[in-house]
Nucleic acid binder design. Structure first.
Lengths: 338, 338
DNA sequence: AATTAGCACTCAAACCAAAAGAGTGCTAAC
DNA sequence: GTTAGCACTCTTTTGGTTTGAGTGCTAATT
């Protein structure tokens, strides 16, 4: 357990480093946090904190910079949260209560405001696989294809087609539609994935169109897989505002990381309550960056996560406050719509 | 008009500069292009080319680098085109003849291969506004909304919904659908934009549902507007492979340029035949970069453009050859599908 | 026992001067 | 018209010196 003074010093180092991106000296700490101590005393404490693994000295005549461990304890215990100004809060509220037609639009707006206000790339994950199927429609498009539409309790999936077999009548299409509805209505989108096509059953009813049915089911599976989760990233270029990415080699590394959609999804997809901070090597993907996230409602019955990603030396006070605030506003906005 | 020797020298400077990114000296030119001249002779020529505006000398004791004008004449007259190896051609063919279900998939594949093979960000513009409407469908989703589907001769637009008025019967939906088809079938998607809603006509037929009809037409307009052109950009991070973007300030500038979708669209959207090269300040947007593009077929009756964007000092020989080849393969692939 | 003043020490960063090297332009000869 | 030769310019490299920030340690102080 750290003494009060050690905490104060550690906090001052992290705060200072976040602000200046340079090693922090004993003298600076004295001035900013402990004017009643001498710099020598602080030096002793710094030395202790270093051997405890919280601080790093780039070279002997430099100040100290925080280790990953220091950022961790800073975020968890030391920092005092920032309160967003009323203007800022109002701005966010205004932006997020704007009338939107689709969830996608909402996602876009959330990502935009998050990125603008934190000056970091914003991540928004939409989870879709728990919707319950209300009905399935097969729409003959008169061009030999049918549009497969899945209506769920909160949205409409409509990106799949099936080729119709020759000599297919609209009556048969209707039968197929009925059959699909009988089986799938009430199930979850994600249930498609585990569904095994019952050849014998259909063989009896539709004979030759067995293959066609199988194809529809496969289409539905594919559709549900591609729509089970969707990650939007907005404002990648914001990282150029931060000194750690002055060297474009570093910028490339960062952008490559953000591009690893599946891995980022995994990081965002955890059901921990409240705002979570993942730092640097705590997760192999993050090497050199941190991620701040929170679970949110993106629409009626549509849940997801929002977050930002950026350098380990990000302004956690502010970023955590923003992510927290936006997620709360979002939940409020969504729930007041009912 | 340039003498043969001047051409040879200018070509050597551009070739050398493209390869090494450093100023090219008289000696190098002698070795690479004119072993029968002395470096002094070449120096005289270089001096002449400089005063003609083709070359720039960064400082007195440096070699020459090409001006924008030099790149222009190089691309138009001097360079000898590269021939893609058979392996490479086969690779592209294989990649582009792979079975795809939608135009979007095709666009993705084209962009991917283009970017990978040129080591530059790839641009693919899909033009959609000339499709001819085959039919319009209104599909009752049982949740108070109807899905508006526009079927054209080559694709299906299906991203729009309308809220159904209360007490709306499926019979009325059918009537509405018939009415829409009567008016719009045979027209082009782009025609929606100029269509004025004929209040009186509908008033007679459907009385109270006037507003609803207007809403459908507005929806159709919006749909056709958002789908009239679509730009995909793939492989932005490829620019980090090029020395001009070692400084991340430059990289940011470039990425900001690429982000200006509308302006990039304008550059891609011109109906010049064959492969076109736009260099640097020839277009205000391009400041510091060049763009190589070609018009292509992306599907039956779907035209568009493909291109890459990168530093002025890009390998035009190769890039032009690649863009050319891919556009030809694409046209071949699409036409052989019929 | 904790704190602090004082000082020696280290090391990065800034500075400067000299040397090396690349490449030119010009002149005079071919 | 071409070229050898040379003086000149300017960048780049090198290496050494200085400066200054900041520490760790010791010894004195509270």
């Amino acid at each position: 357990m750290l003494s009060e003074r050690k905490k104060k010093i550690l906090c001052a180092v992290v705060d200072g480093y976040i602000e200046s991106a340079t090693p922090i000296s004993s003298k600076e700490i004295m001035q900013s946090a402990l004017p009643n101590c001498s710099s020598a005393t602080i030096r002793n404490e710094l030395s202790a904190l270093e051997s405890m693994g919280y601080l790093i000295q780039p070279h002997v005549s430099a100040g100290r910079i925080p280790s990953q461990r220091a950022f961790r304890i800073y975020v968890d215990e030391l920092m005092n949260y920032e309160r967003l100004s009323d203007e800022e809060t109002n701005l966010i509220v205004k932006y997020l209560t704007h009338q939107v037609d689709t969830v996608e639009e909402m996602v876009e707006r959330v990502a935009k405001v998050l990125s603008e206000i934190t000056h970091l790339p914003a991540l928004v994950l939409k989870e879709d696989n728990l919707d319950i199927i209300t009905s399935i429609k097969l729409l003959d498009l008169d061009n030999g294809k049918a549009l497969v539409v899945i209506v769920t309790d909160c949205r409409v999936l409509k990106d799949s087609f099936v080729d119709l077999p020759e000599h297919f009548t609209s009556g048969m299409l209707k039968s197929a539609q009925d059959w699909l509805n009988k089986i799938f209505v009430g199930k979850r989108i994600s249930d498609f994935l585990n569904y095994n096509f019952p050849f014998e059953l259909v063989n009896d009813q539709f004979g030759d169109f067995n293959k066609f049915f199988k194809r529809i089911v496969d289409t539905l599976k594919r559709e549900s897989l591609t729509h089970s989760m969707q990650l939007s990233t907005v404002g990648e270029n914001k990282i150029f505002e931060h000194v750690e990415y002055k060297d474009s080699e570093k910028a490339k590394q960062f952008l490559d990381t953000v591009e690893q959609k599946e891995l980022i999804c995994e990081l965002l997809y955890c059901d921990q309550d409240g705002t979570t901070v993942k730092i640097d090597k705590e997760d192999a993907v993050l090497e050199g960056c941190s991620l701040v996230k929170s679970n949110v409602q993106l629409g009626e019955n549509i849940s997801g996560s929002i977050g930002v990603i950026g350098p380990v030396r990000m302004n956690y006070k502010r970023v955590v406050a923003v992510v927290d605030k936006i997620s709360k506003i979002l939940n409020y906005v969504i729930n007041s719509k009912r």
